[in-house]
Amino acid sequence: MRNDNTTYQDGAFFQRDRAWHPPALTPDYKTSVLRSPKNALISLGNTISEMTGPVFGHAMIGPLDNDLIRNYATTGDPIGPRTIVYGRVLDENARPVQGALVEFWQANAGGRYRHKKETYLAAIDPNFGGCGRTITDDEGRYWFRTIKPGAYPWPNGVNDWRPAHIHFSVFGHAFAQRLITQMYFEGDPMIWQCPIVMGIPSREAVETLIAALDREASLPMDTLAYKFDIVLRGRRSTMFENRREGN
């Protein structure tokens, strides 16, 4: 039976499971060697500074922001497999995170990024910028259209290649939930050869970053779809019994 004097208030976030994330130092990913703090993190917990976060309104999103096929193109569509990526942003309590800003960026179909410090010899696509963004709806859903990025070599080992991936930056409801991660594609054997991926301690955790090919969400004769859910930190929900005045 519902007690009408009871309300729920958002509390502190669950402790981040550091054993689930890659550690700061992953020596096979060489750049981490000099960029990883050696001291233990100081446990701060949540104060108002971590339990609050910026709000981004739907008004800032342009009509082509979630269409990487069209948002940079001038002379035609970019080359590459036409791809839909969709999913939900959830928290660890499996509740949808509505109003979450999701930003994404990626290489083109040849594995080349549009960035002035990028030197891979694969061609720039004149019709592909490689960035997009959207805000989740009331059920935490998002989607965007793009071309599938290619794999590319990177200066780490003599012959290391990144699996095809899309970078994601996600804002939840609080700064404590801030997350940047990468999405990989189902069936790619290179996922398991990548030093950045393999910094994640468990196979189970890696698998949560692999988007599933979804034929049912694909558009016949048009676009293949991949489903990628993102999970942000959950928080305690504290139950309060509202006392009547005078009690």
Binding site: D17, A94, W105, H115, C131, S169, T181, V206, L232
Partner: peptide, 20 residues
């Protein structure tokens, strides 16, 4: 409960998505 999506590095090309 679900597990938080594991973090991955922002990489050297983070500007494409965040400060184009």
């Amino acid at each position: 409960r679900l597990k938080e999506s594991p973090s991955q590095t922002a990489g050297p090309y983070v500007h494409i998505g965040t400060t184009p």
